[in-house]
Write a protein that binds this DNA or RNA. Structure first.
Lengths: 113, 113
DNA sequence: TTATATAAACTACAATGTAGAATATATTAA
DNA sequence: TTAATATATTCTACATTGTAGTTTATATAA
């Protein structure tokens, strides 16, 4: 019982990837929007923040508060970025999945290329 | 609220992929072994069957009982195979993840090739 | 000073992940 | 023939992750 490195859940992976994609503009609303646009996954904003908070507790993301948007008022944004260990975890998950897919071909699919 | 196609959890994906890899020899012990060998994921056999059963309930795998092993006795094996809708679900999960990875590059990684 | 827009925090529950003990069933040895 | 042992599944319980919905905070404009 040594390396008890927990795997990321799938939704956690999606959030980390969203944040990486968004760069300096990753906060609740933009993340939610990206998920909807890219993979048609419509989650409530509450679902999002809950998972984001858990990721932060595990040290996979870091956050800092920004100022309220100048456009039309409102509460301050909370910007997220993926930590080094978050990237690590992401890489591990990707590799595991790649390994598992390695010698699998689905019906009506071509293995590669 | 139309297409309520649930995503597969990550562990569910691993099990489906294991079964596909194992072909005609996919049952509790071999699946568990494959997971340990390929991705160093050591799950208890109980964890495995629980998830397998849930996958079956959702129609993503099918099972049939085999005969007891001739080698040295013991209980009959339960063989699993992935259903067409299981493959579908797997494909969807893969695509979603691919899409999310699309424009992400990790530190110290080369994007492709 | 209230309406409205923007965004985050809180609360609660459902689904998935995981372990460990209990049970079933076949073979082999005494 | 029955106790020991090997192989394999089923059952029970709990932890973690996924998800929704409501509430609260805070800024601007009317």
């Amino acid at each position: 019982m040594s390396s008890k490195e927990k795997y990321l859940g799938e939704f956690e992976q999606f959030l980390l990837l969203s944040i990486l994609s968004l760069g300096d503009d990753a906060y609740g609303t933009t993340i939610r929007q990206l998920l909807a646009d890219k993979i048609e996954r419509d989650v409530t904003i509450g679902a999002l923040y809950t998972t984001l908070e858990r990721l932060e507790k595990k040290g996979f993301v870091e956050s800092k508060m920004g100022e309220a948007t100048r456009e039309r008022g409102g509460r301050a944004k909370k910007y997220f970025k993926v930590s080094a260990s978050g990237e690590q975890a992401l890489k591990r998950s990707k590799q595991a999945l790649n390994t598992m897919w390695q010698d699998v071909t689905l019906r009506g699919e071509h293995s590669c290329e």
